[in-house]
């Protein structure tokens, strides 16, 4: 028999990781940012569990998201009958937190801190997150099962060994594991898989009026790119030629050379 092709191998590995997480981590949830990566994750979960989704989906809502994202979120959750948890840092929001207070401060309050309080509130032992190595430097160094301590901190210079598909499943109570099933995927892999599988994704990614979103985030901090790519095929063709980074339109990444490392040490996804 022929070997599995690249996308088949990636799919098989991600399904294996999802099943390890479901089996070995007590209370498990999946972060769903509405973007293409976490929508691919949702699709992979349906494959891993034969059409079922045996854990809740969590949206950390900053209240600044692009409005179409919220509408898409609620529609798909209803269609699929997902158990959806929407969590906001209400305290920071009522205190007027926003990007005008500084982008990194805003990300920390409305994403990192919101995620931490959500994790504690629901007592999650494992959170499945759709980050990929090729997105940015600190993610490139991640483990598939990555431990966070009681304060959600990531000890990035002392990561445990991870070999032969034997992931970190022993950890003290109160810590949790970030599970990264898409770590080995690239942006192009994600698009090719969306194309091959016919996964319906939010149409903000497709060009209208010569521009589109390449990466989705909060409205004030996420810029569109110039593009005429209106289909998955056209996006794949565009990416094959591009020289810019996927997250170039994400303002918080550009604040300082180690902005993402700093955010992620504190618990950012």
């Amino acid at each position: 028999m022929a070997r599995l092709d690249h996308l088949e191998s990636l799919e098989a590995q991600s399904v294996y990781i999802l099943r390890e997480a479901y089996r070995n981590l007590g209370r498990l949830g999946m972060l769903w940012s509405i973007g293409k990566d976490s929508t691919v994750l949702l699709w992979l979960a349906k494959k891993a569990f034969f059409g079922h989704c045996p854990f809740p989906f969590i949206h950390v809502d900053t209240s600044y998201k692009i409005p179409e994202m919220i509408e898409y979120r609620d529609r798909v959750a209803k269609e699929l009958g997902l158990e959806l948890i929407v969590h906001r840092n209400e305290e920071a929001l009522s205190d007027g937190m926003g990007p005008d207070r500084g982008r990194l401060a805003c990300c920390k309050a409305l994403k990192t801190d919101a995620l931490a309080s959500m994790t504690k509130k629901y007592g999650f032992d494992g959170l499945i997150v759709g980050v990929r190595r090729d997105e940015e430097g600190s993610r490139s160094k991640e483990r598939v099962f990555s431990e966070r301590d009681n304060d959600d901190l990531w000890d990035h210079t002392h990561q445990p060994p991870e070999l032969w598909g034997q992931f970190k499943t022993e950890f003290p109570k109160g810590h949790h594991i970030r599970v990264h099933p898409l770590l080995e995927w690239t942006e192009l892999d994600v698009w090719r898989y969306i194309g091959r599988e016919g996964i319906p994704i939010i149409d903000l990614y497709f060009a209208k009026g010569h521009e589109r979103y390449r990466s989705l985030g909060c409205a004030p901090c996420t810029a569109k790119i110039k593009s005429d790519a209106a289909t998955v095929d056209e996006i794949i063709a565009e990416l094959a030629l591009t020289k810019t980074s996927e997250r170039a339109g994400r303002a918080q990444d550009q604040e300082d050379a180690y902005a993402m490392q700093k955010l992620r040490q504190d618990g950012y996804m």
Binding site: L7, L42, W43, K46, L80, R196, P200, F206, V232, D233
Partner: peptide, 15 residues
């Protein structure tokens, strides 16, 4: 989530 798509997702993407 169904497999049908409204995004113009086509075939022939994969060489």
């Amino acid at each position: 989530m169904g497999t049908d798509s409204s995004n113009g997702i086509g075939s022939g993407i994969n060489a």
